[in-house]
């Protein structure tokens, strides 16, 4: 399985890469402030589709591949914001964007029946931390519904390296998100928190695997989701502790909020433990908004929808609040529009 992901990355890079970005922090550098790495995605509205939508085109023309890598030398410290931005689309303002978005989706569907309503986008992100490097990473993405996305992320941590990763995804199209993190240095540490929100018929699959191959490494991994309408999440989580990784301390959690009948959360959190000196656990919870909480908020004067929305933001809040304050606020707004919390957005 591991081989497959890495092989895919290599093949993709060689054959398809049409854009790449890299950030390198030399050994012992202490970078101050937040480094931004914006990854621009051509928007279908301003790009390929706007030309002559009547003419049949090869699906390949609509494929995009974006790659980014971040490397920290030994002892380096940095904070990085990686953002996937659809050029030309002001996706925060979903209400205004709605008719155009629907138009895009319809066009794309007509063009490419195999992947209905979507353009194919592959992104890959590589992270390497040398010994004792520390990286605080924020990865944000809220692409319009016209993209169906495959996101590959890979991180490797050397001895004593610490990776704190906040991953926020409100892509409106379908997505397959594969993240593999390898704790291959003794005493390395991972703290990963992900938030995912989806509505309408969006399908998102998040495969998150944490591999401990060195002694005394530690990982904390959580994915929180909120699902509306008929959105469908499949979470595949894995903690794999190899025989060489004695003293591993690992926890994997998945918390799903199913906001409506018809929305669906599938959760497969797995443990594969091959040695004894470990403390490994996982937890998964899935449920609707708690009736007592809804009742409490409604008794304070909120209507049912507003109370529900507040609970959604509260649920995702523990992840969003890891972002710097201005970004956290922005992502809350994006969450609200991506989940159709403000307006009763209709699904196509």
């Amino acid at each position: 399985m591991s081989g497959t992901i890495l092989d895919t990355l290599k093949v993709s890079r060689r054959e398809k890469a049409n854009d790449a970005a890299a950030l390198l922090f030399p050994a012992d550098s202490k970078s101050s402030g937040l480094k931004r790495l914006d990854i621009a995605i051509s928007s279908p509205a301003s790009g390929a589709l706007s030309g002559a939508p009547q003419e049949p085109k090869e699906p390949a023309e609509y494929e995009q591949y974006r790659e980014a890598s971040i490397a920290l030398g030994a002892g380096a410290e940095a904070a990085v914001l990686v953002r996937f931005v659809a050029a030309g689309a002001a996706s925060q303002d979903r209400a205004a964007d709605e008719p155009a978005r629907m138009q895009d989706a319809r066009l794309a569907r007509a063009e490419n029946p195999e992947t209905p309503g979507s353009l194919r986008l592959t992104t890959s992100l590589h992270i390497r931390l040398a010994a004792h490097a520390r990286l605080n990473l924020y990865v944000l993405s809220n692409l319009p519904a016209s993209f169906s996305r495959e996101a590959l992320s890979h991180a490797a941590l050397s001895e004593g390296a610490v990776l704190t990763w906040t991953n926020v995804v409100f892509d409106e199209g379908n997505g397959l998100y594969t993240t593999r993190i390898e704790l291959e240095g003794e005493g390395s540490e991972l703290d990963f928190a992900g938030a995912y929100g989806a509505r309408c018929t969006t399908e998102g699959e998040h495969a998150l695997s944490i591999h401990h191959t060195a002694p005394h490494s530690k990982s904390r991994t959580i994915l929180k989701s909120a699902l509306k309408d008929s959105a469908h999440l499949a979470f595949r989580g894995l903690i794999h502790v190899e025989n060489t990784a004695r003293g591993t301390d690992a926890y994997l959690a998945n918390r799903n909020l199913v906001l409506e009948d018809g929305a669906r959360a599938e959760s497969f959190p797995q443990l594969k433990i091959e040695t004894d000196e470990v403390a490994c656990s996982h937890g998964a919870t899935t449920g609707g908004p708690r009736q007592e909480e809804l009742f409490y908020l409604m008794s304070r004067g909120l209507d049912r929808a507003a109370a529900k929305n507040m609970l959604v933001l509260g649920h995702l809040g523990s992840v969003l609040n890891r972002l710097p304050p201005d970004l956290a606020e922005e992502m809350e707004d994006i969450a609200a529009s991506a989940l159709g919390l403000n307006a009763q957005g209709s699904c196509i």
Partner: peptide, 27 residues
């Protein structure tokens, strides 16, 4: 150290009014 333990749970929830909890520990 030579023995193994695996946990493969699956949860598939399609209802808003459900509470599902899963916890696993290996030690």
């Amino acid at each position: 150290p030579h023995s193994r333990s695996n946990t493969y749970p699956t949860m598939d929830i399609r209802s808003e009014q459900a509470t599902m909890e899963h916890e696993a520990k290996v030690s």
